[in-house]
C-alpha cells in the first residue's frame, strides 16, 4: 500500500504546530497503525529528520498508552486501540490525517504525544481502595453478587487511554472518571470510601480543567473498551447520593 500521511508536528509544548505531509510506500495491510508509523519513522531517521513522536507501550490493546486521532476519530475507524488497528482498514492511495488528543487538560508534549497525568491525579483523588497490606485475603471471604461483579468488571476494563476526552466536544473526562467510580463503588471492598471517592474524583476532574458532560455520547462511541454512556449516569447518581448524605470535603 502507498499512503499519504498528514501528521501533526510540534517541536515542544511551547512551540506552534502544523500538519506535515509524508508519503509512505510498501505498507502491508497486516501491519498495525503503529507499525506503519514505525516505517515512516525509519525513513525519517535515515533521511536525518526528527522521527514522529507518539505514545505506545504494550501494543496489545491493554495498557492505554497509545492514542492518536486518525481521520477525526480517536483510535481511528475501528472500535479498538490504535495499536490494534490494522492497515487493512485503509485503502491503497488513502490520505490519512493523524493528530494528537485535543483537550486543555491534555497539553501536547511533542508531535502526537500529550500529557495525560491529569488522569493519574484523578485516580490519586479516590480511584483506589484502602486495604491493610499483608497476605492476600481468602477470595471467597467477601461475597460479591454476580450482577455487581459483572458491572465492576465491565468498568474495570477502562485502560485510561483518554480517547473519551479526545472525542468529547467539551474535552470532558466524565466517561473515564465514571468508569473508575462505578468499578469500585459497586464492590464491597470499595464501600467504605464510596462517598468520598465520587466527590473527590469529580472535584479533581473539575480542577484539572476538563469540561462538563452534554450527553453528546462521542466518548462512548470511541471507547475501545466499550464503556457505556450510562456509566456517566451511574456516576451522577453516586455523586447526588453522596452530596445528599452531606459527605463533602
Amino acid at each position: 500500500m502507498k499512503l499519504t500521511l498528514r501528521v501533526w508536528r510540534q517541536k515542544n509544548a511551547g512551540a506552534d504546530g502544523a500538519m506535515s505531509t509524508y508519503e509512505v510506500d510498501g505498507i502491508s495491510p497486516d501491519m498495525s497503525f503503529l507499525e506503519m508509523l514505525d516505517t515512516l519513522n525509519e525513513e525519517l531517521t535515515l533521511e536525518g529528520e526528527d522521527p514522529v513522536a507518539f505514545d505506545h507501550d504494550c501494543r496489545e490493546g491493554i495498557c492505554g498508552a497509545c492514542s492518536l486521532v486518525i481521520n477525526g476519530d480517536a483510535h481511528g475507524p475501528e472500535r479498538t486501540t490504535t495499536c490494534q488497528l490494522h492497515m487493512r482498514s485503509f485503502k491503497d492511495g488513502d490520505t490519512i490525517d493523524v493528530e494528537p488528543w485535543r483537550a486543555a487538560a491534555f497539553p501536547v508534549v511533542k508531535d502526537l504525544v500529550v500529557d495525560r497525568t491529569a488522569f493519574d491525579r484523578i485516580i490519586q483523588a479516590g480511584g483506589y481502595v484502602s486495604v491493610p497490606t499483608g497476605s492476600a485475603p481468602e477470595a471467597h471471604a467477601t461475597p460479591v453478587p454476580k450482577p455487581d461483579a459483572d458491572l465492576a468488571f465491565e468498568h474495570a476494563e477502562c485502560i485510561g487511554c483518554g480517547a473519551c476526552v479526545a472525542a468529547c466536544p467539551n474535552g470532558a473526562a466524565m466517561l473515564f472518571t465514571s468508569a473508575k467510580i462505578n468499578h469500585l463503588n459497586v464492590l464491597p471492598q470499595g464501600a467504605p470510601e464510596r462517598e468520598t471517592r465520587v466527590l473527590d474524583m469529580v472535584a479533581q476532574m473539575d480542577d484539572e480543567g476538563f469540561g462538563g458532560c452534554t450527553l453528546a455520547g462521542e466518548c462512548a462511541t470511541v471507547c475501545p473498551k466499550g464503556i457505556p454512556l450510562t456509566s456517566i449516569t451511574g456516576m451522577n447518581k453516586e455523586w447526588l447520593r453522596a452530596t445528599a448524605k452531606g459527605a463533602g470535603r
Binding site: G72, R102, G171, G212, A216
Partner: peptide, 22 residues
C-alpha cells in the same frame, strides 16, 4: 464557557458529530 475553554484547539480533520438536537 467551561466546555469551550476545555477544548481550545480544534481538530484539523473535522467530522459531523452528534445529533442535530444535541
Amino acid at each position: 464557557r467551561r466546555d469551550i475553554k476545555a477544548r481550545p484547539s480544534k481538530y484539523v480533520h473535522k467530522k459531523a458529530r452528534a445529533s442535530y438536537a444535541t
